[in-house]
Simulated scan of single mutants.
Amino acid sequence: MNIALSIGHHPRSQGCDTIDGSFTEYSLWATHLPLLRQHLEAYGHTARIVNRTQAGGSTPSFAAAACNAVHADLAIEFHFNAADTPEATGTETLYWRGSALGKIAAEMLQQAMTGILKLRDRGLKTVSSPNDRGYEYFHKTRMPALMLEPAFAATNAGDWARLRDTMPALMAALAATIHRYSETVNN
């Protein structure tokens, strides 16, 4: 299977900072997605790390274009959450409402993330309307696509600590789960 691992945001506008200021959304995933790619390649998959700047822009529609350009079978965009209150916590996964395969992948990866992070399961979030978060990304991808929000790392110190401290295990669990997804949809 060919998987596009899309780094959320872009070099000039890197998204939220972690609560301790050590990473932005962009820098966190640029640092850690190579490990996920390595695990996926060990399972025999092709994994390409992409970013919207590779498609010539800075908006989510360019993230979709970057995923489409590598002819991915599954696209996953990586982010982390922020909230108005430091009490907000948990893990959520977004997918395109009309995508049966996207929903299967979302369910599997959400379970993998909550299993490792041990944070509140905020569930799956469907995207179908221009007002929904990530609409342009989902609307323009040509394959099952997900957006992962594993923790409120920007505003909750406990969430950030869990994400930071479990990152190697999380990358391994996501790779194993993507491999299981591949076996599920290809059988």
Rank of each mutant, 00 (worst) to 15 (best):
M1N: 08
N2D: 11
N2L: 15
I3N: 08
I3Q: 09
I3E: 05
S6P: 11
G8S: 05
H9P: 02
H9Y: 11
R12H: 05
R12M: 06
S13I: 12
S13V: 12
Q14H: 05
T18H: 01
I19S: 02
D20M: 12
S22W: 00
T24L: 13
E25H: 01
E25P: 02
E25M: 07
Y26W: 14
Y26C: 09
S27A: 09
H32T: 13
L33H: 08
P34Y: 02
L35K: 11
L36T: 08
L40W: 00
A42L: 03
A42D: 02
Y43H: 15
T46D: 07
T46R: 15
A47F: 05
A47M: 07
I49E: 02
V50M: 07
N51M: 06
N51A: 10
N51G: 13
N51F: 00
T53V: 07
T53R: 04
A55V: 08
A55Y: 04
A55P: 05
G56W: 03
G56D: 06
G56A: 12
G57P: 11
T59C: 08
P60Q: 05
P60I: 01
P60L: 13
F62L: 11
A65R: 07
A65Q: 14
A69V: 12
V70A: 10
V70Q: 09
H71M: 12
A72N: 02
D73V: 11
L74H: 03
L74Q: 03
I76Y: 04
F78P: 03
H79W: 06
N81W: 10
N81F: 04
E87G: 03
E87M: 09
E87N: 09
T89M: 06
T91H: 04
T91C: 14
T91P: 00
E92I: 02
E92R: 05
Y95I: 14
W96D: 14
R97G: 10
R97L: 08
R97E: 12
L101S: 08
L101E: 12
G102H: 03
G102I: 01
K103F: 10
K103T: 14
I104Y: 02
I104F: 00
A105D: 00
A105H: 00
E107T: 14
M108P: 03
M108Q: 09
L109T: 15
Q111S: 09
Q111F: 00
Q111G: 01
A112V: 10
A112L: 07
A112H: 04
I116F: 03
L117G: 01
L117W: 00
R120F: 05
V127K: 06
G134F: 08
Y135E: 02
E136M: 08
Y137M: 14
H139V: 09
K140C: 12
K140W: 15
R142S: 06
P144L: 08
A145G: 10
M147W: 00
L148T: 05
E149G: 10
E149T: 08
P150Y: 10
F152N: 01
A153F: 01
A154N: 04
N156I: 00
N156L: 07
A157E: 14
G158A: 11
D159Y: 04
D165V: 06
T166P: 00
A169M: 13
A169E: 14
L170D: 01
M171T: 03
A176R: 14
T177G: 01
T177H: 04
T177F: 03
I178N: 02
H179L: 08
R180G: 09
Y181C: 13
S182W: 15
T184G: 00
V185D: 02
N186I: 03
